[in-house]
């Protein structure tokens, strides 16, 4: 029996948080403040060494802040016992850090055991989580980490972090070490999970495209963990705050924006406008996919299908372009937050 209750996220507030390792060097994190809403998926993006990981690791006190205040769900983190605090915060890192001497089931059971769950409850939870991350329980539970592929290990890493159903997840480039195909798959799966879980997630990456794909809001950071821009993906793409952010977005901002907009949001042509080409697009696909199909169809409009595969209209290059323009106009930075 798989039950799918899950604790949804809680708010996190960081107030003037700083970390300096020695007084002569500039601070690794300098006066960082941020308000994170319950259930929000926040991406911290920046070049290596900018302090994004340090910022994240202060939330569960793997790194102790030099000064400032961190509040999770109304509680001052610095007043809690770090070990007890961490049992309620999921943690996934790029190197995964599975315990090599424990089986997959034992790895996932660590936090439930620390929390004193009964054997049965823990066993049920392990089964449920393995199903959740699409690792068939029966054969994987008794295997050891070294017997799994990198992608499988990272799924276990996610399952282990979710074991005690924590309201908050901290993730440090969790998919960074996997190959591009696996990474894409893991990202989509995780996004699907988050849709039902509504955890509060702080996710560190240096990959801007990953940030666009996953985040509700993205904080673009520079040295000392200074927030250069903190906004939704669409707003950052359409209104980059400065050169630094633009350089992060890189080439093809319009194309990247298209990936964020569903076909359903565009104004469609009547179904009759579609050419007879075999190419079509679904209403729940994004405009980037639609553009791809239009190009394949020789630049002519292609049919748009709904969930039931009925033709509901057609879309061509002009409709795609208009939708992008509308989106940019509608989501000015003032309205976003």
């Amino acid at each position: 029996m798989i039950k799918t209750t899950s604790t949804s996220g809680v708010g996190i507030t960081l107030e003037n948080v700083s970390k300096s390792y020695n007084s002569s060097a500039p601070a690794a994190v300098d006066n960082f403040s941020m308000n994170i809403n319950p259930g929000e998926f926040i991406m911290l993006v920046g070049p290596s060494g900018c302090g994004k990981t340090t910022t994240m690791k202060m939330i569960n006190r793997i790194i102790e802040p030099t000064s400032g205040k961190i509040i999770i769900d109304g509680q001052d983190v610095l007043s809690l016992n770090p070990s007890f605090l961490r049992r309620n915060i999921g943690y996934v890192i790029q190197q995964i850090g599975l315990f090599p001497h424990m089986t997959i089931a034992e790895n996932i059971s660590v936090v439930p055991n620390l929390l004193g769950w009964s054997k049965d409850k823990t066993a049920d939870r392990v089964e449920e989580l393995l199903a959740l991350v699409e690792l068939d329980g029966g054969s994987f539970a008794r295997r050891y980490p070294k017997e799994l592929s990198g992608g499988q290990q990272q799924r276990v890493g996610v399952a282990r972090a979710l074991a005690a159903d924590p309201p908050v997840m901290l993730m440090d480039e969790p998919f960074g070490a996997t190959d591009p195909i696996t990474r894409e798959k893991l990202q989509l799966e995780f996004l699907r999970l988050q849709e039902s879980m509504h955890k509060t997630i702080v996710f560190v990456t240096h990959d801007f495209d990953e940030a666009l794909k996953l985040g509700d809001r993205i904080a673009v950071l520079s040295a000392g963990s200074q927030i250069v821009q903190f906004d939704t993906p669409a707003n950052i793409l359409s209104n980059p705050a400065n050169e630094y952010v633009s350089s992060f977005i890189g080439q093809g901002a319009a194309l990247k924006s298209l990936a964020l907009i569903d076909v359903a949001q565009a104004k469609l042509l009547p179904a009759s406008a579609a050419t007879s080409s075999p190419h079509s697009v679904a209403t729940f696909d994004n405009l980037r996919t639609a553009l791809d199909r239009v190009v394949l169809a020789g630049g002519h409009p292609v049919a748009v299908l709904d969930e039931a595969e009925r033709v509901v209209g057609a879309i061509g290059i002009e409709e795609i372009s208009d939708a992008l323009g509308a989106d940019v106009r509608n989501l000015s930075p003032e309205k976003a937050v």
Binding site: N60, I62, S83, F84, L85, R86, R87, N88, I89, Y91, I93, Q95, I96, G97, L98, F99, P100, H101, V110, V111, L114, R160, L170
Partner: peptide, 28 residues
């Protein structure tokens, strides 16, 4: 591996628990 030790701490193991449940068994 430091990643393993960090994971152990981040999961809420006390330093003693990290030593005896993770580090020593792996170094065994």
């Amino acid at each position: 591996s430091p990643a393993v030790l960090e994971s152990a701490a981040a999961m809420g193991m006390t330093p003693l628990k990290v030593m005896f449940a993770v580090q020593i068994p792996i170094a065994w």
